[in-house]
């Protein structure tokens, strides 16, 4: 039986690109795109992508029961990858949309970039959009074959801060330093879009399909 990788579809925007990128790097795994909580629980690996506003995202997850399925996958020790809003949704709370309680898989906060200035004094544009460097916070199987400070594609106006150091798998600077990647046991989450980050991104997805998390 080949492994099943579930990409969670909760009906918001372009969630298929993650599926297409995973298909590109899959090595015998079956990629399914699903909004069914039971299929998510039954999968061997789960990818939780996301775009759009956090309030709508969390509302849909709760309505469909996918919120509990994601928590269950996290607890079950199966590899789980959050992408962009998928990462933010796994934090404790986001200040977007006047404050939204999130899934609480990680003990981090999602905050607005705000008025930021570069070291030359020019105002930085928000959304943070484009290719920025990720400083790897630790050696990790998800970083295998990826240069430290490699560039990934970001597009976001909110970012994750306040994570404990040991949970920050990668950092990025844009007026402030934020968590570009977070890790906790079998859960890995990235603020950037690996499915849109050319070779570096495809390598990260390939690493995810091979990742065998060590469970304490």
């Amino acid at each position: 039986m080949s492994e099943v990788v579930a990409v969670i579809d909760y009906g918001m925007g372009n969630l298929h690109s993650a599926g297409k990128a995973l298909e590109k790097v899959a090595n015998g795994q079956t990629i399914i795109i699903t909004g069914d909580p039971d299929q998510v629980r039954a999968a061997d690996r789960v990818v939780f992508p996301g775009v759009g506003a956090i309030r709508d995202c969390i509302a849909v997850l709760k309505d469909t029961g996918l919120d509990q399925a994601i928590r269950d996958v996290a607890k079950a020790g199966k590899p789980l990858l959050g992408i962009c809003v998928g990462m933010q949704a796994m934090m404790a709370r986001s200040e977007e949309n006047n404050g939204v309680d999130c899934l609480g898989v990680f003990d981090g906060q999602v905050t607005f970039f705000g008025e930021l200035f570069s070291d030359t004094g020019t105002r930085l544009k928000v959304p943070h959009m484009g290719w920025n460097q990720v400083q790897q916070g630790m050696a990790h199987p998800m970083w295998a074959g990826i240069d430290n400070h490699a560039r990934f594609y970001f597009v976001h106006s909110y970012c994750v801060t306040g994570l404990p150091d040991e949970a920050v798998a990668g950092r990025c600077d844009y007026g402030l330093t934020f968590a570009a990647a977070a890790v906790q046991g079998n859960v890995f989450a990235v603020q950037f879009h690996p499915e849109k980050s050319a070779d570096a991104g495809l390598t990260l997805l390939e690493n995810f399909l091979r990742w065998q998390p060590k469970i304490n």
């Binding site: 570069s118 943070h128 484009g130 290719w131 920025n132 460097q133 400070h149 560039r151 970001f154 600077d173 844009y174």
Partner: peptide, 8 residues
């Protein structure tokens, strides 16, 4: 070091 300018 930081955000790169893009060519499209």
């Amino acid at each position: 070091m930081g955000l790169a300018k893009r060519i499209i």
